[in-house]
Nucleic acid binder design. Structure first.
Length: 416
RNA sequence: GUGAGCGUAGUUCAGUUGGUUAGAACAUCAGAUUGUGGCUCUGAGGGUCGGGGGUUCGAAUCCCCUCGCUCACCCCA
């Protein structure tokens, strides 16, 4: 074993791939129901995009990016998140000129240099959705419903939606000042991490897991009490609508997301079946982002969700992801002439969309039967000397063990 | 970046106070009389005991270093 996969990456082997296909199918079905269109953007972007879009103070940009110079000296970065690239594509392709509203989704891999742990990888897959062009509270609601539907169809029902609003930028700044004012007096009691955050990003102290920090922040001013009337009313409408649709909601004043571009609504789907990294997905509004990236002012809302995490919870719940593909018929050949005939018959069946398999190792009759059994095929078609002269093979049903002669050109109808 | 736990066949694990050729189960492959799977029986292949160094007559077992994995902090999907 000389070569190993890089830390934090994974191989998805044939025995598991059908689960991924299933989940991807669900995502494509559900996004279609909500009239979202897929976008695919490059795996890497100019580094500046993420610095500008995500924010240099965030951990993602500050220490987690896979950044490198190409041969011309341009700084490129493997995408660490999905929203900034989609916004770049949206602006660059002047999509707003085609239509005033766009609903976009993606399923793609993301890269972040972090220490791997349960549910956290250096390369992971996210599916996400973005609604661009509308600031209607219905768009926030629709995205949450979309994600919820995907989870449900993957057998994931035991999660709750944490929701909060961090208001408009000026409301947020005013609130952060109040928060810092409150924390100032407790500064010595805060954890070292939070002391650091007090300087860099005081909002983040709210979601510290440190029990001491939590006791202090329990009594801190709440951002929801410091929103303007418009923001507050917007938040209430989102909450009311989701409650009406019986989404398992929890208003959480601690929910401040780690990306700089959020405004107003923020939300996160959390599941107790994950480890310490308990977020299935998260998102929020980002009404200033497109303008910040050089586009015309345009409201937007989006979310991203970790596919690995969805699969972890689904599997823990014992969800069955359909079945792996298997051939419908297995050809057993007892000599070279039969092998030749089998090969020819298989090609004809495959043209009729019938999945076939045969032995490629010149194995014994018994071994071929075993192979067919292990593959779980329903039918076996046996070709030997007698069958070749008769022009009929033996078709055996593996579950009933019944067997009958079937003409070479009647196989397709016989196995229906 | 910080901390803790763990590394023995493909997989899950045994391996007694250091003592002969390191075991089991499952998986894989083959056979159980002539051309028939699942169950059963028999057999086979497969291990530098993560790697390196040290202690010892002798190390999977003790010590040191190193690599890897896992989980947690951090952060997030």
């Amino acid at each position: 074993m000389n070569f190993r996969k890089p830390k934090g990456t994974k191989d998805i082997l044939p025995k598991d791939i059908y689960k991924w296909h299933y989940a991807e199918r669900v995502i494509r079905d559900v996004t279609a129901l909500y009239n979202f269109s897929e976008v695919r953007t490059p795996t890497f972007e100019y580094t500046e995009l993420f610095k500008r879009g995500v924010g240099t103070d965030t951990d993602i940009v500050g220490k987690e990016m896979y950044t490198f110079d190409d041969k011309s000296g341009d700084s490129l970065t493997l995408r660490p998140e999905g929203t900034a690239p989609v916004m770049r594509a949206f602006v660059e392709n002047s999509m707003l000129n085609d239509a005033p509203l766009h609903k976009l989704y993606y399923i793609t891999n993301m890269f972040r240099y972090e220490r791997p742990q349960a549910g956290r990888y250096r390369e992971h897959t996210q599916f996400g959705g973005e609604i661009l062009g509308s600031d209607s509270f219905y768009t926030d609601v629709e995205l949450i419903l979309l994600a919820k539907e995907v989870y449900n169809r993957c057998g994931v029902n035991n999660f709750k939606v944490k929701i909060n609003s961090i208001g408009k930028p000026d409301e947020r700044n005013a609130y952060v000042a109040k928060l810092r004012d409150y924390l100032k007096d407790n500064l010595t009691a805060l954890s070292d991490d939070s002391k650091r955050r007090f300087e860099t990003n005081a909002l983040r102290i709210l979601d510290s897991k440190n029990p001491g920090d939590r006791t202090i922040t329990d009594a801190a001013p709440k951002i929801l009490d410091h929103l303007g009337t418009e923001s507050r009313s917007r938040f209430d409408k989102v909450v009311n609508e989701l409650t009406k649709l019986s989404v398992n909601l929890e208003v959480d004043f601690r929910l401040v997301r780690g990306l700089d571009y959020y405004t107003d609504t923020t939300f996160e789907f959390v599941s107790e079946d994950l480890g310490s990294q308990d977020a299935l997905g998260g998102g929020g509004r980002y009404d200033g982002l497109i303008e910040q990236l050089g586009g015309k002012p345009c409201p937007g809302v989006g979310f991203g969700s970790g596919l690995e995490r969805v699969l972890i919870v689904a599997e823990k719940n014992g969800f069955t992801f359909g079945e792996p593909n298997k051939p419908q018929i297995y050809f057993i050949s007892l000599n070279d002439a039969a092998r030749d005939k089998a090969f020819e018959l298989m090609q004809a069946l495959r043209k009729n969309n019938i999945a076939c398999e045969t032995d490629m190792l010149n194995r014994s009759f018994k071994a071929q039967m075993r192979d067919a059994n292990k593959l779980g095929v329903k039918n076996v078609y046996i070709l030997g000397e007698d069958e070749l002269t008769k022009g009929k093979g033996q078709l055996k049903n593996m579950s009933t063990s019944s067997q009958s002669e079937v003409d070479f050109d009647k196989i397709a109808e016989a196995i229906n």
